[in-house]
Design a protein around this nucleic acid. Structure first.
Lengths: 354, 354
DNA sequence: TTTAGCACTCAAGTATTCCGAGTGCTAATA
DNA sequence: TATTAGCACTCGGAATACTTGAGTGCTAAA
């Protein structure tokens, strides 16, 4: 219950760090003999054994079975992440590579998030994920319409989040170019800056009045506007590179892998987890710290992406509990920041290559 | 080499079908004794054994090892699919359920494909996939622009495939509402119906002339138009419900699963496979019929989706080789056809519930 | 406080045995 | 000639026992 605060001696910290670093690399329990070869730890394996026993007693280590080496516990990882892990700084090659890939992808907000996720996945060799929160309180700031043909026109909406949403609409009857223009004007006059939940009878009546002659369209139009604002992009969570996880022995247990894949499918659950993490720093969720039981065997690192102060989504990495926290944090942070810089709308002038 | 055409006796067909049906259901080799319990096959296990031996000799069956039952070979599945399988007709409950889900998703083309894929995956309990081909020969038929703020405007393009693409553009300098309008006019006058690869110097000059005072924008604008037309939506292939495959013992072999997941990541490869299948009927690719080696242990069923005669994508199912071809075919076909009906642009009037 | 030494533990790999579902073949039967 | 009962045979998979060695905890000496 009450977490006893334990001060670890420098040597203990050194040993704990060495164990975690080693275990992150090869996934196997770490033994005292191996550690004694480490130049930094200047004592015999017997001493290390004693230290390890104490570290286990205070909950930082675990023993898979009585004659095996030690493995970090979740508490161990947490301590490592909070105070042991040394900041990983990406090599200039890595940075250059990242910049190249990010620069080549000048597509829509949606696309750029996805390709960034892919890059993250490749660079870290874990699974990358993208989250786009369900929009709330979003209103339309401007409507536009576009004549397509006799029976078809396009509705274009600029939302308060700065996104543009479009929808092709086929009407049941012939529309003149002028009609289409009028539809746009009517919408602009009645539905801008209106929360879709607050569309009431007076507004509807006004819309119908302005649509004079095209009243039939009023109801369906409102419905479409509502849907476009509410439904976001349909799927709010995407992941890339699940296959990478198969390389880690912890997921060769099919059951564990299944759990994880189920978590990926349970999009709303994962969405909640990400949304509820408010801090705009990098979030690290280790094993069972994750309220989603399916993800209790893996760790999650992500960072919210804000444009103009408002969160527009998040990107992150899912990997085994023993993932390379230092490196992943650095990569996620770097990519998230690059994205923030470039998502705000794309400069016409080439991006400043600092 | 030269495929000998073998006429199978009715009884052989019956036995083959029974074996495949059974194997599809429980994934295990089928023995003669089990088959002899089948009322339709009115003969002893010994006779069945003889028949099975012959079916194996002609390549329709295989024996995992000499003292096991028989398992369908790829040739067996092919024959089953081509001439044995009885058409599965969906129950009215299934149809009603499908309609409900499809109707509730009135989002963009992109979104509707994805949710349809999800539905397919849930209904069949295999992995669903969506493919959107790389656009070729697409041109812009109409441009529009929308003023966002001083420094930002939106570019809206109606393409020859009837899709609408948008892009928010932040300029390096202040733009009046009128400037934005002029940009649209300039683009409409110069770049409509021009293949992005054929944008040449005269066109560029004309664009610059018309942008009079905003020449700086000419080059970046062209680049953006080019990108939007070329890059499609970034990711052309999506899948849903990979975890479902883990339920099938054939994929508890991690290696096989890995292969398959790699195939999913090798988007361009899978894209080629789907694109090269021209027939607009349902395509069935069994095991090693698939040129993608990674998918030689699984089967793929998909159907191209055409809108106005032009293919706009495809949806399909990936599952183990022993997948329930009859049912999957029916579901894929039904969903594809529903999509074709509803993707062509959404009626304002409620869809005709036949 | 540290370390050398030693007895002990236990997972994982290897060898061996056993079981039975399912076969192919032969000889009897319809 | 086609079918069937009967029987010996095969071979993967489960169960069991045996071996190995990495790693431990503990004790006693430095």
């Amino acid at each position: 219950m009450s977490e006893e605060i334990i001060e670890l001696s420098e040597r203990k910290k050194l040993i704990l760090k060495a164990i975690i670093d080693s275990h992150i690399q090869n996934g196997e329990p770490v033994g005292s003999k191996y550690l004694s070869e480490n130049k930094q730890i200047a004592c015999s394996s017997a001493t290390i054994r004693n230290e390890m026993a104490e570290l286990e007693a205070s909950g930082f280590l675990e023993q898979p079975h009585s004659s095996a080496g030690r493995v970090p516990s979740e508490k161990g990882y947490r301590f490592y992440v909070d105070s042991l892990m040394q900041q990983y700084s990406m090599t200039s090659t890595e940075i250059a590579e990242l910049n190249k890939i990010l620069a080549s992808k000048h597509t829509e907000a949606d696309g750029i998030l996805e390709s960034a996720t892919k890059v993250m996945s490749v660079m870290t060799n874990y699974t990358g994920l993208t989250v786009r929160p369900k929009p709330t309180g979003v209103v339309v700031t401007r409507f536009d319409t576009m004549y397509v043909d006799d029976l078809c026109f396009a509705l274009i909406m600029l939302t308060s989040t700065g996104e543009i949403k479009t929808k092709k609409i086929r009407s049941g009857f012939v529309l003149e170019m002028n009609d289409v223009k009028r539809i746009g004007e009517a919408l602009n006059a009645t539905l801008t800056n209106v929360d879709p939940d607050n569309i009431n009878v007076p507004i509807m009546l006004e819309l119908e009045r302005r649509l004079d002659g095209l009243e039939l369209l009023a109801n369906p139009l409102v419905k479409i506007v509502y849907d476009l604002l509410r439904q976001g992009d349909g799927s709010e969570l995407k992941y890339e590179g699940v296959n990478r996880l198969l390389e880690y022995p912890e997921f060769s247990d099919t059951e564990k892998l299944k759990h994880l894949l189920q978590a990926f499918d349970n999009k709303s659950g994962l969405l909640d987890v990400v949304s509820s993490a408010v801090g705009d720093d990098t979030n690290i969720i280790i094993g069972s710290e994750n309220p989603l039981n399916e993800m209790n065997d893996s760790s999650l690192i992500f960072k919210t992406i804000r444009v103009g102060g408002k969160p527009v989504g998040a990107i992150g990495i899912v990997g085994p509990r023993r993932m390379d926290y230092a490196r992943v944090c650095a990569v996620v942070k770097y990519i998230a920041e690059s994205l923030e810089r470039s998502m705000d709308g794309n400069m016409l002038s080439p991006p400043d290559n600092k």
